[in-house]
Design a protein around this nucleic acid. Structure first.
Lengths: 188, 188
DNA sequence: GTCTATAAGTCGATAGAC
DNA sequence: GTCTATCGACTTATAGAC
């Protein structure tokens, strides 16, 4: 049983994704919840807080997942596979909220934006370290690290869009296909 | 010498990209143009028109480029390379406007949205045909065509973001790296 | 905890002087 | 073609009855 607060959050994520944060009004969220806009404020304190919470939760999940992988004793190739699997898992479990990461984060209030970007930058930095390590070990092609990183992240961050139209796709098979599709592009 | 109308359009594209369409006010655009908001209406007829024009222009450029490639007698592999080159070229020449394609298009008014999606769907359909042809010829791996398509398009559509931070990167070299990075993922 | 009513501000767009 | 002034609609959020 979800708390009403959590129901509102899920509902908002769905609308933010569909219409964008700025174009989604508190009245829209209230209508989808069968309430009046004013009643929402008994459960949340502001629209910005609702939005920041969604994005910072996702950023934290990525940070935790990345730390586990980066600090493990897995091989470099296995680390990359686990990273792809992490994106697949979070996409399946938080499809709406994860969609906000690509573009909607610009609407974060200044206070949250700083914390969000800290998560994001450190995630990308650790991702880059893994790619560089693979190149050093000679298992990856000599393509500009930043181009590899941007290419992988673009695809992984856009996965929510593909997954939404293919929710019946077996999620283990999806993980396998993504790993296959993304890693063979850089393997020697 | 740009017409004032074109200056406003470029200015709006930059702001739409930075702050999002809904969060960019006519007053914001006017300020960046050193005018008052009311004066903008001597050159454009509405904010929606300004936005629709930007997105439909990009959609048309992609459609024209795709038609030339699809109807050519190039090999399948060369067609894909030309397609990647088309994205690189349009990204370099229209960095701000192209950024709106990924997420901001949802703010198109209903009238323009239909036309925009017609362009987009037909573009993706022809892209899919090229990938399928390559698989039939045995030059591409047996990965789900839709996954290949989504993976390529995610990266190509996100290129504006990478390019913005690397504007000094030689654009011929960028094209070569993108082709290398994207095609080796699916080549047998 | 939900409602009605409303405050206080911003939005796109127009009217009309110059 | 630019300006000031303003309209009417919409926004987030609050006050206070029930």
């Amino acid at each position: 049983m979800l708390s009403k607060r959590q129901e509102i959050s899920n509902c908002a994520a769905r609308l933010f994704r569909k219409k964008g944060y700025k174009a989604t009004s508190m009245r829209d969220i209230a209508e989808a919840m069968n309430m009046k806009a004013a009643s929402l404020y008994n459960h949340i304190s502001s629209k910005e807080e609702l939005f920041s919470e969604l994005l910072l939760k996702m950023a934290t999940l990525f940070t935790i997942g990345m730390e586990e992988i980066a600090q493990s004793s897995l091989s470099t190739a296995d680390k990359l596979e686990r990273l792809i699997a992490l994106h697949v898992k979070l996409t399946v479990e938080h499809t709406d909220a994860i969609s906000l990461i690509s573009g909607e984060w610009v609407h974060l209030p200044e206070s949250s934006a700083a914390e969000y970007l800290k998560h994001r930058d450190s995630y990308e930095k650790e991702f880059r370290t893994i790619i560089d390590q693979g190149k050093k070990e000679g298992i990856y092609k000599d393509i500009d690290t930043d181009i590899i990183l941007f290419s992988l992240l673009s695809t992984l961050r856009g996965l929510y869009s593909w997954y939404s139209k293919n929710k019946d796709y077996n999620s283990i098979e999806l993980e396998r296909q993504m790993i296959n599709c993304l890693t063979h592009g850089i393997n020697k």
